[in-house]
């Protein structure tokens, strides 16, 4: 069993740079709309925002619970062994599926990617896993991308990016990079 993410490195700050920018955009934007478009428009936008938050909120809650239970139920090694097993196309296919369906943000994906090396996955499959998680993560797509961007655009984006993880994996396999020796540098930290 893994320790909960709150006890694991690296620790995330409550207020980080991204948060400061979010605060700035919200405050400056609100001020701008109030002054330029008037209070009526300001409150109308806030009303639309409230509806959107009500729509996304439950999904975020479900995604967080899903990722938290998964971290407690499965070890990184077990996940890496399963999704990193098999050579060639079979290995690629597993890594590809793993990257797309594993819930949770970077605190789930990177420890698993690091465990791929220890579990004996090949370099190409590991690259496929990371690229698939970055580009195709269902969790992030449902919770965040579909909340803000219209569904047709999201679907088109997914369709176009489908082959990209495989291409990156093929390049990694052909060149032997990025290698697990490079990865070990990270584990020694």
């Amino acid at each position: 069993m893994l320790p909960p993410s709150s006890e694991r490195e690296p620790r995330r700050k409550r207020i980080d740079f991204g948060m400061v920018i979010l605060i700035f955009i919200a405050v400056a934007g609100g001020l701008g709309v109030w002054l330029l478009r008037g209070p009526e428009r300001f409150f109308a936008i806030l009303g639309e925002d409230a509806l959107l938050i009500l729509k996304i909120g439950p999904k975020i809650l479900a995604a967080m619970l899903l990722a938290a239970w998964m971290r407690l139920l499965m070890s990184e090694q077990a996940v890496a062994r399963w999704f990193g097993r098999g050579a060639g196309w079979a290995g690629f296919a597993r890594a590809y599926a793993g990257g797309a369906i594993l819930p949770g943000g970077p605190m789930t994906a990177y420890p698993i990617a690091a465990a791929f090396g220890r579990a004996g996955a090949d370099i190409g499959a590991t690259a496929v896993f990371l690229a698939s998680w970055m580009l195709l993560s269902l969790n992030r797509t449902i919770v965040w991308e579909m909340a803000f961007i219209d569904y047709d655009t999201v679907l088109q984006r997914l369709l176009i990016t489908l082959p990209v993880p495989i291409l990156i994996g093929l390049v990694a396999q052909a060149t032997g990079r990025p290698s697990f020796a490079d990865m070990a540098e990270g584990e020694r930290r």
Binding site: S5, L46, I53, L65, F148
Partner: peptide, 21 residues
């Protein structure tokens, strides 16, 4: 654990939605 994650995400979500609007 999820509650801790939510404490991190919820303010970002609310600010993101409001700022984007």
């Amino acid at each position: 654990d999820a509650w801790g994650q939510l404490a991190f995400t919820a303010p970002r979500l609310v600010l993101g939605v409001i700022g984007a609007g």
